[in-house]
C-alpha cells in the first residue's frame, strides 16, 4: 500500500524520474529491430559493363534516392494476470507495457479509463491513477512515481518500451466473482488517424510521418476479479453430566464441535482456528481432534496445540482452504469447574 504522502512529488523528483525513464528505455532499445530508422536515405546506382569494338567499358547509371519516413505505431500490452481483489481494497495496480513499434522516436500520452462496459463494476481510479514502474520491479511500490500528463509523457525511441501501472480502488459494494475492467491508452502526440495518414515534416529529423496500422494509438484492458473468500464457521456443544444426563453441572463434560468450510471461490490461506477456553471451565487434556485425527496438546509439528502461553486457547492450523476441501471438523472437550 502506498502512503498518502507519496502522492505529492516535488519538481526535482520529476526530473529524476525522466532521467530514469530514459535510462530504462536505452536498455530495452537493443532488444529487437523496429525497421529501418526514419530519416535513412537509400541510394542506388546500377553499373553496366560491356565490350564495344574490342574495348571493355564500365558505366554507371544515375543515382536514385529514397528517404525512409517515420511510421508511427504503438502497442500496449497488459502484463498482469487477473488481479484478485476484495471490497474496499485500495491502490490495486495493473501492469502494462507501452512499446514504440514504429521506426522513429515518439512521445506518447497515457490515459486511464475504468468506466468501461462489459464488466460488473467500475474500479475507481486512484489519485493520481497512472504510475511508472520506476524501479523496474514489476510490483507497484513506493519507488514508483506518478505520471503527470503533458509533463512527463514518455519519449520512446524505436523499439523502446516503458512499463506503466494503472492504480484503482475497489468499491465496497462489489460482491464475489464480479469483474471490473480498467484500460490504458497510449496515444502518439504527433497524431493519430487511419493507417496511411500523413503528417508532413513531423517525423524524426523533419521527414514525413505516416500513421501505421495501429492508428498511432493502442490500448489494453486489465481485469479485477472480486474474490473475497467466505468462510462458514459453526460451533455446536454437547453436555454430558456425571449422572448420565445433559445438565451443565460442575464436573460435566462439554464437547465442542466446530465445523469450518469455505463457501465461496478463492483460497483462505494459512487458516488458523483458535478458541478460548471459557471461564469456569477447564480444558480436558488430549481431547483435540481434527477431522477425527488426534492432535497433541504439545506445540510441535502436528496441526495444533493447547496453548497456555496466554489465556488458555485451543489452536488448530487448517492450512490453505478452498471450497473443494469441504468441511473441516475440530472437536475438543472441557469440564465445568
Amino acid at each position: 500500500m502506498r502512503p498518502a504522502n507519496q502522492q505529492l512529488v516535488p519538481a526535482s523528483v520529476w526530473a529524476r524520474q525522466t532521467l530514469r525513464v530514459c535510462a530504462l528505455l536505452a536498455l530495452s532499445t537493443a532488444a529487437i529491430a523496429a525497421g529501418t530508422p526514419a530519416g535513412t536515405v537509400i541510394e542506388n546506382t546500377a553499373t553496366v559493363s560491356f565490350d564495344l569494338a574490342g574495348t571493355t567499358l564500365t558505366i554507371t547509371s544515375n543515382t536514385t534516392t529514397i528517404t525512409v519516413v517515420e511510421r508511427i505505431d504503438v502497442v500496449v500490452t497488459l502484463q498482469s494476470p487477473q488481479i484478485l481483489v476484495a471490497p474496499n481494497d485500495t491502490n490495486r495496480a495493473l501492469l502494462f507495457r507501452v512499446t514504440n513499434t514504429g521506426n522513429g522516436t515518439e512521445t506518447f500520452a497515457l490515459a486511464i479509463d475504468s468506466n468501461l462496459s462489459g464488466d460488473d463494476f467500475d474500479p475507481v481510479p486512484a489519485l493520481p491513477p497512472i504510475y511508472f514502474d520506476t524501479d523496474g520491479s514489476g510490483d507497484f511500490n513506493v519507488g514508483d512515481l506518478p505520471y503527470n500528463p503533458g509533463v512527463d509523457d514518455p519519449v520512446l525511441p524505436a523499439d523502446g518500451s516503458v512499463d506503466i501501472f494503472l492504480v484503482n480502488d475497489i468499491p465496497g459494494t462489489v460482491v464475489n466473482a464480479e469483474l471490473g475492467f480498467s484500460q490504458l491508452t497510449a496515444t502518439s502526440l504527433t497524431g493519430t488517424g487511419a493507417p496511411g495518414t500523413e503528417y508532413t515534416g513531423q517525423g524524426d529529423g523533419g521527414v514525413d510521418a505516416i500513421i501505421g496500422t495501429s492508428g498511432g494509438e493502442d490500448l489494453d484492458v486489465g481485469e479485477y476479479l472480486v474474490s473475497e473468500v467466505q468462510i462458514s464457521v459453526i460451533k455446536a456443544q454437547a453436555v454430558s453430566d456425571p449422572f448420565g444426563g445433559i445438565q451443565a453441572l460442575p464436573g460435566a463434560t462439554i464437547t465442542y464441535t466446530i465445523t469450518v468450510e469455505v463457501t465461496s471461490s478463492g483460497t483462505a490461506t494459512a487458516s488458523v482456528f483458535q478458541d478460548l477456553i471459557p471461564t469456569f471451565s477447564t480444558y480436558l487434556p488430549n481431547s483435540i481432534t481434527l477431522n477425527t485425527a488426534a492432535v497433541s496438546d504439545a506445540t510441535d509439528a502436528d496441526a495444533g496445540e493447547f496453548d497456555t502461553s496466554g489465556a488458555p486457547t485451543v489452536v488448530v492450523r487448517l492450512g490453505d482452504l478452498t471450497q473443494a476441501d469441504g468441511l473441516q471438523t475440530v472437536i475438543f472437550e472441557v469440564t465445568i469447574d
Partner: peptide
C-alpha cells in the same frame, strides 16, 4: 542519365 562509352543507362 549517364551517357558514357556509347551506352545509356537509367535507374
Amino acid at each position: 542519365a549517364q551517357e558514357q562509352g556509347h551506352l545509356n543507362v537509367t535507374t
